[in-house]
Simulated assay, not measured.
Amino acid sequence: MASAKLELISIFLILISIFSTQVLSQPSECETESSDSCNNKSKALPLKIIAIVSILITSMIGVCLPLLTRSVPALHPDRSLFVIVKCFAAGIILATGFMHVLPDSFDMLSSTCLSDNPWHKFPFTGFIAMLSALVTLMVDSMATSLYTKKHHAGIKPEGEVASGDQEMAVSSGGFHGHHHGHQHGAKNDLEGSQLLRYRVVAMVLELGIVVHSVVIGLSLGASNNTCTIKPLVAALCFHQMFEGMGLGGCILQAEYKFFKKAVMVFFFSVTTPFGIALGLALSKTYKENSPSALITVGLLNASSAGLLIYMALVDLLASDFMGPKLQGSIKLQLKSYVAVLLGAGGMSLMAKWA
């Protein structure tokens, strides 16, 4: 069911990749890397190895932290502190889309290495990001609807039997039991629908983060610029840890079984290191300023940005701020707003180095 749920987004990303390979021939200077004192392949290799190890460790710590702190009463999903930390992580994800992924896509698709027609005649970045957000909305809505129908189909017989048994009771106590049964069934139905919603959010959010992480890793692995790799590694460690905390909170709320949790943690943790390793393997043929690379990575970044921005605003922030917990406390709302601003501000500051 998970593969069917994400099929539309996967097809969308594949079509972008196929379309992006149809490029015109460009000047030879766009196929070669710039030569300066910072470009040193032998010095860049150990930095990339360090990046793989450090990013893998920080990614695992970030995504596992919410899952391991479930036993800590203060960080239970029902507590206020968990909501504040989740809002901080949502601010990280929002800033990632707006301050890192989207500007990179604009830079790539407006490069002078690309032909004027069509790349300089139409704002492809904004168009793809908008389309990606709409496709994410469609998949999000349809997946939630399908899971909700399946959930209702599974619990209706049990609910009807329970109501029927209580209707057999007589006297005034029988009416109370019947009424209580309906209340209990409605509560379970609401909790079940919310749980399914959390699961859809976790799956779609992971997809957007995975696409973005592979693209980041590929760019880092293919680069030999030691001047940019050093600060980029530190920024990516910070980024992966807190982005992982946001995803980990969603996985925790989804209440998956251990195997599904392990799979999602594994894919989040290894995607950026995998991208770096892939960039290392393709470093001889992959040129980050070549037209094919600029178009492919630029379009993937735009689609990832639209997905991340939608998920951060709609499924994480709006869902929490318009929910009963935050609506019932202005004080908690203010604390959560501060957490969002701190998360978004911190990740925005990282845009100076990454």
Rank of each mutant, 00 (worst) to 15 (best):
193 S>L: 13
92 I>T: 12
42 S>D: 10
168 M>C: 14
76 H>E: 14
302 A>G: 10
142 M>T: 05
168 M>L: 15
153 A>N: 09
108 M>G: 00
202 A>F: 08
245 M>C: 13
177 G>Q: 11
235 A>F: 11
16 I>M: 10
289 N>R: 15
316 L>M: 15
63 V>F: 09
5 K>C: 00
321 F>T: 11
177 G>I: 11
106 F>M: 13
132 S>C: 07
327 Q>G: 09
280 L>E: 01
289 N>M: 12
41 K>D: 12
206 E>T: 04
112 T>Y: 07
100 H>M: 03
339 A>N: 12
219 S>L: 12
323 G>V: 05
68 L>I: 11
54 S>G: 10
18 I>L: 14
22 Q>L: 15
137 L>R: 10
277 A>N: 01
337 Y>D: 03
336 S>P: 14
179 H>T: 13
311 M>F: 03
337 Y>T: 04
192 G>A: 13
219 S>T: 13
59 S>D: 05
58 T>K: 02
8 L>P: 00
62 G>D: 02
248 G>K: 06
132 S>D: 05
111 S>N: 12
110 S>T: 15
338 V>T: 10
310 Y>H: 15
27 P>M: 15
222 A>Y: 03
223 S>N: 14
351 A>D: 09
268 F>Y: 08
167 E>N: 05
301 N>Q: 15
61 I>W: 10
329 S>Q: 04
300 L>Q: 02
131 L>D: 04
158 E>W: 03
70 R>F: 11
279 G>V: 03
132 S>T: 09
345 G>I: 06
73 P>S: 12
133 A>K: 01
301 N>G: 01
324 P>C: 12
233 V>D: 01
327 Q>A: 07
49 I>H: 13
95 A>R: 01
64 C>V: 00
131 L>P: 01
298 G>V: 07
18 I>R: 03
175 F>N: 11
45 L>E: 12
189 D>C: 09
256 Y>T: 11
153 A>K: 11
221 G>H: 06
125 T>F: 02
296 T>C: 08
88 F>K: 00
135 V>F: 14
308 L>Y: 04
207 L>C: 07
217 G>A: 10
140 D>G: 06
108 M>K: 13
199 R>S: 05
302 A>Q: 03
243 E>C: 03
42 S>L: 11
165 D>E: 15
104 D>H: 13
6 L>Y: 02
154 G>S: 09
39 N>H: 08
115 S>R: 09
